[in-house]
Amino acid sequence: MLVFVILGYALLSIYEFFPLYKENKQKEFYVNLVLGIISFTMAILISLRINIPSPAEAIKIVINYILKAFAM
């Protein structure tokens, strides 16, 4: 799985990052690079079956807290 992820992102970088770099679109390149690093990290973590905390649970806790506060 990990091999597929690395291979996939290597191909993606050839398709996406190199043209931007060559065309000297610096801002686009750096924003894309940051997004690419985030997505690559997430892909690696998912492929290694490492649990990434979900924001849904945090949102649920905050909303329940607010609802309780208003109910009081």
Partner: peptide, 27 residues
């Protein structure tokens, strides 16, 4: 937000993050 010339450059990565995000949302 980043004052980019075009949104098309970031669609692939944003889409991939969206896909991974949808996977981690619920168990």
């Amino acid at each position: 937000v980043f004052n980019l010339n075009h949104y098309k450059f970031i669609v692939i990565q944003t889409g991939l993050i969206m896909a991974y995000f949808s996977l981690i949302l619920y168990d």
